Amino acid sequence: MEEPPLERSVRILLERGLVQVEGGFVFSRDLRINFKNIVRITLEQSLEIQSRIQASVLVVLGDKGFGATTGPELYPRKLASKLLQGYHDRNHTVVTVPGDHHVHLNDPEVVAPLVSDFLRTKVLSQHLPA
């Protein structure tokens, strides 16, 4: 029987994020990054920051990811829509694939070719001598 996606994600995250030590396990990353950011920025501030990005950007979205599965109070669709439109307007690459927020963990074979192609066509090609 195939493992449910959520359980698979948890297993992968724990395998990657835990280190066995004498007496048990410890997290191998700084847990402070899990704390909520109490300083919120506005949509306008987000768009301003986004407009300053000079590098090529690849956005890979799971069709069952944050925008599809969380309530509007957690991830407002308006915010997501405006930010994604900003990426489109600046000719960045936005791709939607089947999966949830952890599609890169659960189904790396779906995401890896997209990343490889993006790096080859958008990143490496810009840095190779003519």
Rank of each mutant, 00 (worst) to 15 (best):
V94L: 09
G23A: 05
E15Q: 12
R11M: 05
T96K: 04
E48I: 06
V57R: 03
H101C: 04
K36I: 11
F66G: 13
L124P: 03
D63E: 09
I49V: 15
P76C: 08
F27E: 06
D100T: 09
E3T: 14
H104R: 07
L84E: 09
R8C: 03
A112K: 05
R120W: 01
L31G: 12
F118A: 07
G71W: 10
E109W: 10
E3F: 01
L18I: 01
K36T: 09
D30T: 05
K64Q: 15
L18T: 08
L61G: 03
E3L: 14
Q126I: 00
V95D: 08
L74M: 13
I53Y: 08
R77N: 06
L43V: 13
R120Y: 04
G17Q: 03
A112P: 00
D30E: 09
G67D: 03
V110Y: 03
R8D: 05
R32N: 15
V94F: 07
N37G: 05
D107R: 06
L18K: 02
D100W: 04
I38A: 09
N106F: 02
L14R: 11
V60R: 02
L18P: 00
L31I: 11
D117P: 00
H104N: 13
V103A: 03
T121F: 00
V26I: 13
L79G: 06
D100R: 05
V103R: 00
V57N: 07
H104I: 10
V60M: 06
V115H: 03
V110N: 01
T70H: 10
T93W: 08
P76R: 12
D117Q: 12
V97S: 02
R120S: 10
D30A: 06
V103M: 03
L43E: 13
K78D: 12
N91R: 08
S51H: 06
L43D: 09
I49W: 08
L31T: 13
D107G: 01
S81D: 14
L114T: 03
L14I: 00
A80R: 14
V110I: 13
F118V: 07
Y75M: 09
A112M: 06
V103H: 00
T70E: 11
E2C: 00
E48M: 10
I53Q: 13
R40W: 08
V19R: 13
N34C: 04
T42P: 04
F35S: 11
